[in-house]
């Protein structure tokens, strides 16, 4: 069986579900500044992605090449580097496991918001992301206010949600101060009281983006 036929067979049988996890981590090293990291891990769907990557298109949809994914990450990283108050931008893409990581240091939460917006807008030429303040922080409270633009949710919800059935999103927020409480019912507070972790099913998030909204009260 030729390589292409083999790919089509595997793809045909396996395109139906996709497992991946996204991990967003914000670690405040001072009251204002900190580190941001986003990891997209598609290792569970590695074989399916490998099969799909052998095709140029599937059912009229373009399958991106590895270098294109890398180039998107590079564009996003460049936008971050050019954002005020952002330093030490680093990105990596593991082509064997399909794990992409992008991380950087920020001077303030305002700089973080602007940087995330810049990265999203620059790396996506088709989707318009109106600027929204995603994070907010003062001495006593940290808030995750919104998703990066409603358009992201709109795009995702156009897809068959079954495709994202096993996908999960983890958000971890670490602080210098101790956490008093979190209003998000899904959140867990760390044993040292200095971190909050929230785990979502992606399908739930797409259906109800308000689940992202979290207010964490700090000591």
């Amino acid at each position: 069986m030729s390589k292409t036929k083999y790919s089509v067979l595997i793809l045909f049988l396996s395109l139906l579900s996709s497992c991946f996890e996204a991990v967003e981590e914000i670690t405040y090293t001072t009251e204002k500044a900190g580190k941001y990291s986003l990891t997209i891990n598609c290792s569970q769907s590695r074989d399916k992605i490998s099969a799909m990557m052998k095709l140029d298109t599937f059912m009229g949809r373009k399958i991106p090449k590895l270098y294109e994914i890398d180039s998107h990450l590079a564009v996003a990283a460049n936008a971050l580097r050019n954002s005020a108050g952002i330093h030490n931008v680093y990105y990596t893409f593991d082509e064997r496991q399909y794990i992409g990581i992008i991380k950087f240091d920020f001077d303030s939460t305002t700089a973080l918001n602007k940087a995330v917006h810049n990265a999203l807008e620059t790396s996506s030429d088709k989707i318009k992301f109106p600027f929204t303040q995603i994070f907010s922080k003062n001495n006593l409270e940290f808030q995750r206010i919104n998703t990066p633009g409603d358009s992201l949710i709109k795009v995702a919800s156009k897809h068959n949600l079954g495709v994202f059935n096993n996908a999960k999103v983890t958000c971890i927020y670490r602080f210098k101060q101790e956490v008093v409480s979190s209003n998000n019912s899904l959140s867990k507070i760390a044993q040292n009281k200095k971190a909050v972790m929230i785990q979502y099913k992606l399908t739930e998030l797409i259906k109800n983006p308000n689940l992202f909204k979290t207010s964490i009260i700090l000591k």
Binding site: E21, V23, E25, N41, S43, Q44, R46, D47, Q97, I99, T170, I172, R174, K188, A190, Q191, N192, K194, A195, V196, M197
Partner: peptide, 22 residues
């Protein structure tokens, strides 16, 4: 059996990469 990379978190939510099978 297929192995894949995922993460586990300690009590303070520090992340550690692990290999699991499915």
């Amino acid at each position: 059996k297929v192995s894949y990379k995922t993460y586990k978190y300690d009590d303070d939510f520090n992340r550690q990469e692990i290999t699991e099978e499915r």
